[in-house]
Structures are given as structure tokens and as C-alpha cells.
Design a protein around this nucleic acid. Sequence first.
RNA 1: GCCAGCUUAGCUCAGGGGUAGAGCAGCUGUUUUGUAAACAGCUGGUCGUCGGUUCAAAUCCGACAGCUGGCUCCA
Length: 633
Amino acid sequence: MADEAQQDEKKRKSLEEREQMTELERIRHSCAHILATAILRLWPDAQFAYGPPVENGFYYDVELQHRISPEDFERIEEEMRKEVKANNKFEKITVTREQAIADAKSGRLGGLTERVGESVFKLDLLDQIPEDEAISYFQNGEFIDLCAGPHVMRTGNVKAFKLTHVASAYYKGDETRPQLQRIYGTAFKNKTQLEEFLKAKEEAKERDHRRVGRQQELFAIDDQVGQGLVLWMPKGATVRQALQDFISEELAKQGYDQVFTPHIGKLGLYRTSGHFPYYRESQFPPIIENEALEKMAAEGCSCSEIANRLNEGQIDGFLLKPMNCPMHIRIYAQRPRSYRELPVRLAEFGTVYRWEQSGELGGMTRVRGFTQDDAHLFVTPEQVGPEVMGCLDLVKTVLTTLGMNDYRVRVSLRDPASDKYVGDPANWDKAEAALRDAVQKLGVPYDEVEGEAAFYGPKIDFLVKDVIGREWQLGTVQVDYNLPERFDLHYIGSDNQSHRPVMIHRAPFGSMERFVGVLIEHFNGNFPLWLAPEQVRVMTLNADQELVAYGTAILNQLKAAGVRSSGDFSSNDIKGKVLHAEQEKVHTMLVIGGREMESGSVAIRLHGKGRQGVKPREEAVSELLEAIARRKL
RNA sequence: GCCAGCUUAGCUCAGGGGUAGAGCAGCUGUUUUGUAAACAGCUGGUCGUCGGUUCAAAUCCGACAGCUGGCUCCA
């Protein structure tokens, strides 16, 4: 939703493109005009900026002294209904640029009447309309807006709408420009569809990973520990461990070596890599040795002097690592490397820390400390293509195994106009070509976006939507010609000459935190057997001694086979036991009573799926083991 | 970081200037039971924190913290 809006703001759509608007988009865009009409009746001094349709509705950005709150929605909607009832025509009026400027100056655009002030944003928008493009208004009732359309015929065609929330937004997404109130709403062709949408939205809230994560005791974020710092509770840790085991197996198959590196490293390391002080704002502040601190304190050194000395390298310190690559690079550089051992593939579940702005933090998807399923491949230039391919295959394998097929692939390229990138443009061209080539071979749809590259190289990102429609970057594969340069890495080629390796950074999950957050929503907490925190619970019908002994034997057999299982052998009602197991989302329930004991069998029940019938005990156990081993969904 | 809203028991939530409420969870008993709630009793909260107004503040006001939705950012 935000994506579309941003694009709308960044790139002007051509008139032809605008004519492509679907009927639903027209309804929503028209509804934005109706919203503006209503707001003006209540607050005539409102100044409007953009009011586009977006993925699930529409918004209109407004500058207004009054702070609009959800409490105002009712009376705004009331005014909107009046406008709908009036069934005014959306009339297109083509005007000359001079006329438009005059109307904007008299406050008439985005207004019901001429007003004291100018239509400031409309005036600015007019400025951006190319000389050769026609300028048009759309008028419904008294409301006239600068608008290329298209619209529905009449306000009466907007039959079902609802204001949903207010947020703030900078004009044109630019921090230095005025902050506007963005009023979001949604609209549909009819009331039934609107209600279905609202209901679906309510249901989506139920599977929000923050909610499920708390209910199922998967993870916690505790303000005594710190914002954006995830506590993995036992059940969440189990899920994470199962995922890491899965990745580790795949790594072994693909010739990776796993390593461990520390959480902090000297500032100098990150000066070499270019992270410090360049990306200082997004890092936790450096750690200075006590001795150095005391010495500076004795000298009466000010805070800003300390900061300067750190930046300039006059004093040293340590940095909580914002990335793993420099450490992996130092592992590579421990001794001379031969072309024969390339590619060197170093993998680590490496925890990194980044200073995200407080307003950005949320759940597991945006945090300040997270563990990447990271790896760095040191390859010859010829190996770049096939190795990138291998990485993409790994990402695809991972997503397929989890049944996450609803992703988008983005090739993130540099923005030629920006200076935030390091390295030789010729190398960038090579890297971008290699990525484009690999993604084409992968055979999945993708799009290319300029300006999304990492500062050291272009990348391929896998994007997945969460339950409320926000899109998150998970897996990523990045080609990097720059860090090998900065760290002066070499290998000896078959020609006995020294050569520069190329690095590939890749993380199929991206980060364990974000990935598991999205995964919780994907499964709604109902993990497949191989991931379920509690895979099997054995429950007896009653607390009869013999029956409990039978249950214990089954439980011990499962535990010995490595199945995460527990037993509920109390004298409680079986209904209660089942209820608890269902609430805790235990994957498989084995219910045993006298009949099962007699025949050496178990009654199987699956979470959310109910009774599955009775099976001989051995058969049931071996089926469980097989499903776990196969990572069956 | 910015704008707005929210914060009452472990969870979900009601209440609201005059002795703090419910359901679930938890604890203690009882219940030997055929697949989404057996029964009884008990415990549990300085109403996010700090300050102000008031005879009296959980309730009104302010600051701060945290959370939520956006914006900006995201190596």
C-alpha cells in the first residue's frame, strides 16, 4: 500500500497510465474527493495535497490546524454520505495553465469556494505538470480539485466506504517538507464487499505474530531488556533451532563451512569496511575502553571531542557488529588462498545490532538486534554467476520447503544519481549484470528497482508480505566487488599471479527474527510437525495405572526417537485435555484408553483437523518420524 | 526521530473524581472421565512512571516511558 503511494509520489503517472485505473480504483479515488469535500465542509481552511487510490483503499493528505482523530470519523463520514446522496456529477473541466495558477492562487483548488490563502500544494503540483500535458479539474458539487482523473460518473456511485485510520506523512515523502495528516479510508463496489474486507482485516489481526507470539509463548520483547531486542522463549527457540538445523543441513550439502565470530570488533575493522563512521547513525555507539575514557575525562574532554576523536581514529574502541562480513573477511585473510580452494563459503548464524529509529521498531519484523543466517562466498570472477545461482537456489529451496510461495523478487540496483555507493562503477555494472543474469535463469518473475542497492553492491531480494499487508525483505543475495578491495583480499591464480576475489553475501532467511515473525503469520502459529514446538502429546483417558504405564511407554519411545513430546496422564476429563492441547497448538495428539491399550494402538488427533482414526502404535510412531524427517508440511 | 492514538490482574477486556471488576490462566482440594471447557474454594492490581490540580485522582492536567498505526530511514 505504502509502496504504491510512494511510487505515485515519486513517479508521475502518464495520462495513459491513469486511464488504466480499474473500476475499483476509480471508486476509491473518487471517494478521496468525497472525503476532501466532507473535510472542507467541516474545516474550510483545509489544504489538500495528494489523494490517490492505494492497495486497500485510498488516502488524502491534508494540512489542517485541527488534529483529526478517529473520533472525528463519524461526522466526516456523515458529510461524505450527504455528498454521496446528492449524487453530484464528477465533471471534468479542462483549463489553461494560466487559469489553473490563478485558481490555485485564489485558494479555489482543493476548496469549496475561493479562500483567503493560496492552494499551496496544488500550486506546487501544477508546477510539476509537464508543459505539454493538459491540465484538468474534477468538480463534484462545489468541490473543485486539480485532478487528471479518472473518476466514476457520480458521487452516488460510491456506495460503500469507511474511514480507517489517520497517520502523518511528509509532503512528497520528504522529511524537510511540511508534515500532513494522512486520512486513510477504504471503499468497495458494494456494502457486502466492504464488510468482507473489514472482517478479513479483523481476522488478520488475530494472526498477527505479536499476538500469536505472546499467546503461544514463542517470544517476548521486554522493555526492561530494551526496545527492539527479542527474547526467544523456549517454544520460539525450538522453532528457530529447527530452522537453523534445516539450513545447516542444506549448507553442508552445498559445501559451506560454518564459523563463529564475536559480537564486537575493533572500530578499525569497521573503518576499513566503511561502516564507521559513515553509517554511525544506524549503529549503537562505540564502546570505549575504561582507561581511554578515564584519561579523556581527566583531560576534561567534551562529548563532542570524544566523538571527533573516535571518528578520526585518534582513539580506538569497539563496535557492536552491524554486519558479519568484516569478520568473515578476516577469516578468509588468515593465510594466502589458492584458486584451487575457491569458492570459500563461510556461513554463520551471526547476530548483528543496528540502531533503528524508535518509531520503526515493531514485533519481530523490525528490531535492533537480530541473527542473520549469513554467509560470505569468496569466489573468482568466473565463479560469480554459478555461485549466485547456487545461492538463489538455496533461497528457493528454503521458501518452497516452508510452503511460502507468495513472494516477490526484486533486483536492487544503484541509483546512478546518488553518491552513497562505494566502489568502481565498472564493477557495479558487472555485478548488476551478473545478478540480472542469475535471476533470469532462476525463472521467477522479478522487477528491477534503482536506488535499493546496498552501499557496497547490488542485490536480489525476496520480499514477503505480512498479515497486515506490509512487505518485508527476507532472503537476499548480494554481489560485492568493493569489500575485497577495501580489505585488500587476494588469491593466487593458476597463472601464479595474485588476483582479487569477488564476495557474495547471502542470507536465505534474512534474519531469524523477521523470518520467524513472518512464518508465525504464514502458519498462524500452526507449525508443521517438523517445526512445532510440541510435536506430540500423549493423553490418557483416565489415570488408571496400567493405562498410564502404556502412555509412558509410548512417550518414552517418542522421546528416545527425538520427538518433542509430552504426556497428559492426569485424571482430568479427556475433553479438557484435548482443549488444552488444541489451545497450545500441539501438532499431534495421541489419545489412549482401554481399547487402544488392549490392541496396542493409538487414536490420532491432529491440531485443527480433529480425529484421524486409530492406528497400531508402531505404525503411528514410524509415520510421525517419517513426516519429521521429510519436513512434511 | 516526526505526527496521532493507546497503556486497568499473566492474558482478553469492562468501569470511571468518593473502599478496584469479570472471564480465562494460576494455586488447593474433589472428580477415574472416549476427543474444543468436570466441580468447589483461594490467590492475584499502588489502574505504565513521575509530577500537578483537588478535601479526595485509576478517573482531570502535564512530562516521561512503552506499545500501535503511518511518515522518514533500513549497510
